[in-house]
Nucleic acid binder design. Sequence first.
DNA 1: TAAAAAAGTTAGTTATGACTAACAAATTAA
DNA 2: TTAATTTGTTAGTCATAACTAACTTTTTTA
Lengths: 227, 227
Amino acid sequence: MTNKLNLNNLTKSEEDYLKALFQLLVEGGSAKVGNNQLADYLKVSPASTNNMIKKLKAKKYVASEKYGKLELTEEGKSIAVRLIRKHRLWETFLCNYLNFSWDEVHEVAEQLEHIKSHKLINELDRFMDFPTKDPHGEVIPNADGEYSVLPKITLSSLEEGAVCQLVSVNDASVTFLKYVSEIGLALSSEIKVLEVREFDSSIKIQFNNIEETVTRKFADNVFVKVI
Amino acid sequence: MTNKLNLNNLTKSEEDYLKALFQLLVEGGSAKVGNNQLADYLKVSPASTNNMIKKLKAKKYVASEKYGKLELTEEGKSIAVRLIRKHRLWETFLCNYLNFSWDEVHEVAEQLEHIKSHKLINELDRFMDFPTKDPHGEVIPNADGEYSVLPKITLSSLEEGAVCQLVSVNDASVTFLKYVSEIGLALSSEIKVLEVREFDSSIKIQFNNIEETVTRKFADNVFVKVI
DNA sequence: TAAAAAAGTTAGTTATGACTAACAAATTAA
DNA sequence: TTAATTTGTTAGTCATAACTAACTTTTTTA
């Protein structure tokens, strides 16, 4: 076992930074993540990020050279995955048991993911009978931190004529999620790319016999599986 | 309505102090609560308490004069009651749905009570079908913050020969709760006071045909209703 | 009622984690 | 390949909330 009994003495902030790094590096699939990019993502100043990275390097959760790209150590990744597991399990609970809708769960889950109790999260998992996907279609890591990071293909990356299935959506923006629901898209919806307009990268799509034109920004937040 | 839409911009610390004050003043029934007593209860220095009280006075949650006793304003009480409601609902959830035992719930509930979401706590309440008592026998305030603060009679206050029923226990100590379970006491247990020993205030009690001698400290943490 | 003890207050320090402003290194473009 | 731009770093400040040490007020008790 690589995992020594982790006391998880991390602050909320430290956890936030590790999770953000993981999301950019691993889930986002970026080859290189820099200090300013992380700052941008977390909506803090580059100076704050720089400071925190120093601390996380001292604690061996992050590895990087001066002026070099940021990377997570195994321990850092492990912590991030556990946070993602907690976040997604709570989102699932809120949606399936407490009448929360798609777009309401993220903010509350951001708070709940920092609650420190192994028993709590594992019992919650059992209570829900070990769900594998959260309400936005994202895979939930299991208790050992194992899960498949699907290579995320965005709707915006497809070419004209492609047919795909909606597998997940970026849950970070309430207005985006509301919009998705309103036009009638749902997880597993089958989408056909009718036209990609060169001028502004907007895309005309078809689903459930509906035709819609969506912006590039929208399509960047929709993750699909080609079929 | 006295309750203007409360933005609940309080920090975790501010909430902790308000709840502690409420527990000493209202639930504990102390006529006078001083700065050092509060510091003791929260296990911080008197200087820290003094500082925080200043802040809470500025925010109109606490009222007191220099060198005088501490008191909560209506707004301060309202916040404390909402925290107690959250704490007890989470304890109930952990016990009844997530296989937590009596003595495991307190610590996790201390974290969960600071999650900010009205919907979360009201939906949790509904999900459990509006429970009125938590696992330790304490009354759960309703969504409007109404609940009866039962005058708390401790087992230690009874005289020889008295017969009573266990209504609640102080949940702050894990070792105490374990001890209570181990000797076979449970909520609603009928207890008879057989003997009060003058020397050390220890008490000999009888319940379920078991005889036990308990210390004064133990009996101070057991709340009963005389029958 | 005066001295001792307890309770409350103030001043100054520390750690965390934000921030701005100024500066240095690396990258991109002219 | 120099200049401009972007990116990263450092220094110094602020707020929160803890602390110790010193001091003042109040209460107790001898």
